[in-house]
Design a binder for these strands. Structure first.
Lengths: 238, 238
DNA sequence: AATCATTTGTGATTTACGTCACGGGAACCT
DNA sequence: AGGTTCCCGTGACGTAAATCACAAATGATT
């Protein structure tokens, strides 16, 4: 799927604030151009879905803007959210390299701009760019890492409060901290939090209320302030 | 870590029954030799541990014989088993490529023979062998895939019986089937099964007894026979 | 055989949390 | 303003399953 946006994409790429984190932007110049030639860009509204679990992998999406929810669901409608992807991340990578089906569903939760690379083009590109392949391997390693840590919060907790505490701490890990307090822009509904930690909407709201009563967190509008990381860590450790 | 076993390893490799599944054996001849040169082989007794979660990654282990338990534990001793690795698998790959710490602990549960490749040697090898890097990426993709499916059994179930049923079916997926029945050599203790599905030892034995009563499974010594996959699937789907 | 260690089986008890049900807010559209 | 549609807060209730505590069984080791 050749595209006229090639050059524009390169420029986007070079200008991208996430450049360091991005998978391919700091490859040698010719590689970046080769990549741009097989990339097509598109915008997606909130609620759109990039791919659905079980679909044969068509290719990868590189998220430029917006946020994407990665989840898996059971037959009876229960769903488990694995991750909220941020700009700079590559979606659908594992399925695309292995040739299996997408193992997750990717839903847009904030209007997004993403670059798409079809599977064949992508694999050919990797075959001809050994360093990109290595980069991909590293990215996959990190994705795995994150999955394992999600696994830990769900699988190693004795109680829902432990899960929630674990979740908040992990979520806060990306945010700037000042003197023990972390301000989190909480963009998830209680329902979604529940789906991330494998519990129910009601217990999440109850637990959050509980945490508030115990001065562990504070809610101001849609931002959550962790008043005491230490106490949350105490909950995690039994 | 140059080793005198180089040639021997190539021969093992070519003779290996898992050759197709193995990561590197069907690479071009020169690559295989280069790989052999940086590989060292060792035997490990039952109970030994290849690496521990949290350790900085030293390198990868290619399992030739025996079986290895991959797990993660919380501070208070609760442990979650992610996977039992079989010969042919590569252990420690995600951590080694990303340069982070091992995310899991690898314990030998059946006396094992494994080839070790130190991180630096391995990365250099990958840099010079683009196709190997791609292979690694694919392997990582599959590892991820397995992690997600483990995640599903733990996170999407409403009850412990659902988890156990899911577990048995996944476990059986590798075994030969004849007319609806699958014979599984059950090498795990109830405790270990519990740690795989995130529940307690007692409920596992109770549930298995229950399944036996309901004619879903049958136990003969240490082999488990799934009498009715269909009924197990019914349990999984609500 | 005899002792020990590990694994399995089962009962009794407790409690965390899922589920149902409903009311109040906030946000968004017309 | 009024109607919809989400999201959040809380009460009541029942149950699944963790936990505790032994006993039986299996299997190692001597």
């Amino acid at each position: 799927m050749r595209t006229p946006y090639g050059l524009e994409i390169i420029e986007n790429c070079l200008a991208c604030p996430h450049r360091e984190e991005r998978l391919f932007c700091n490859l040698p110049e010719p590689s970046v151009r080769a990549l741009a030639a097989i990339t097509s860009s598109a915008a997606y509204p909130k609620g759109a879905t990039l791919f659905v679990e079980g679909q044969p992998a068509r290719g990868v999406f590189i998220l430029c803007n917006g946020r994407v929810k990665l989840s898996t669901s059971s037959a009876d409608g229960k769903t488990l959210i694995l991750r909220i992807s941020e700009p700079g991340e590559v979606l659908g990578l594992p399925a695309t390299v292995t040739g299996k089906s997408y193992e997750l569903t990717a839903d847009i939760i904030e209007p997004a701009q993403a670059n798409f690379i079809a599977r064949n083009d992508f694999l050919n590109f990797l075959r001809e760019n050994g360093d990109a392949a290595l980069r991909v391997a590293q990215q996959l390693g990190e994705t795995y890492h994150l999955a394992i840590s999600e696994m830990r919060t769900i699988g190693l907790s004795h109680s829902a409060s432990e899960k929630l505490a674990r979740f908040l701490l992990e979520w806060a890990a990306n945010c700037p901290e000042e003197k023990g307090q972390v301000r989190i822009k909480m963009t998830l509904t209680h329902e979604e939090i529940a789906q991330m930690i494998g519990s129910s909407r009601e217990t999440v709201t109850r637990l959050l209320a509980d945490f508030r009563r115990k001065q562990l967190v504070q809610v101001v509008g849609s931002t959550l302030i962790l008043r005491s990381k230490a106490d949350l860590e105490a909950i995690v450790n039994g």
